[in-house]
Amino acid sequence: MEKGIVFNIQKYSLHDGPGIRTTIFLKGCPLNCWWCHNPESKRLEKQVIFTKKRCIGCATCVSKCQEYAIDLIKENNIIDKEKCNDCGICTEVCPTNAIELIGKEMTVSEVMKEIEKDRVFYEESKGGVTFSGGEPLMQDKFLYELLKECKEKKIHTTVDTSGFASWSTLEKISKLTDLFLYDIKHMEEEKHLRFTGVSNIPIFKNLEKLVSAHPNIHIRMPIIPRMNDDENNILATGEFISSLGLNKVNILPYHCVGVDKYKRIGEIYKIPEILEPAHEEMEAIKKNLNLLKLNVIIGG
């Protein structure tokens, strides 16, 4: 049976599609957005993460680590990334969950079992399952099998994607997906490349093709101050969405929620000084997009 790496299963998820949903976060992402608030989702492999405030210094982990990668005296992160091979033994013995293993290998049926648990809520609320990431298309075979199972079990499915994948992958997935949440991060290729690490051309091409292949696409625009929130970019994005005949847009204000997570996984956050956009700014962007006859919602 197909297996995949899942890094979180969020129940009572209310903002990733209609109704009450379970969001399955698949690990791995080809993009490297500066503002990413789930940095632990980027790598495809499992990884060990440390939360300092939970550590009681019992040193159980130190004695169990076969790579001698843990040193309690270290300031922020007691795990030496060079030595750690992410085997996860320490996470099993840590009594406080200060060390956790991000990413769990799961079979399709294991994931389906979790999904099925909340069926009564999907049915009451016309909700369902959302596959997010990372970039769920990174694990396309796993995703495909999950979608197939959901279709079979009559569970509504949403795929939350950056659109960065081969068209053949996206096309295959689209046949089994009820709703797409499709990200647009920047209209200028150069800036897109700089801030996300990849070109936006395949993303836009995929979107154009998806529009003619799939009836149900909502656009999501993260609003990152000083990076993509200038009026030109907003209007250009709006016009592009309009030109495709799409109508529903969610604008998602940047949130500094991820800052702490970078510390926990031992990485550097590139944009710590950026402030969250004010409510007025979000309203102004909404107004501008409304002029293009787009149906805009602030938030998920």
């Binding site: 903002h15 949130h255 929620v257 702490d260 998920g300």
Partner: peptide, 12 residues
């Protein structure tokens, strides 16, 4: 939180 909900204790 932002576009999602989370446990209060999970936040910094």
């Amino acid at each position: 939180v932002a576009g999602y909900s989370d446990y209060f204790n999970n936040l910094d």
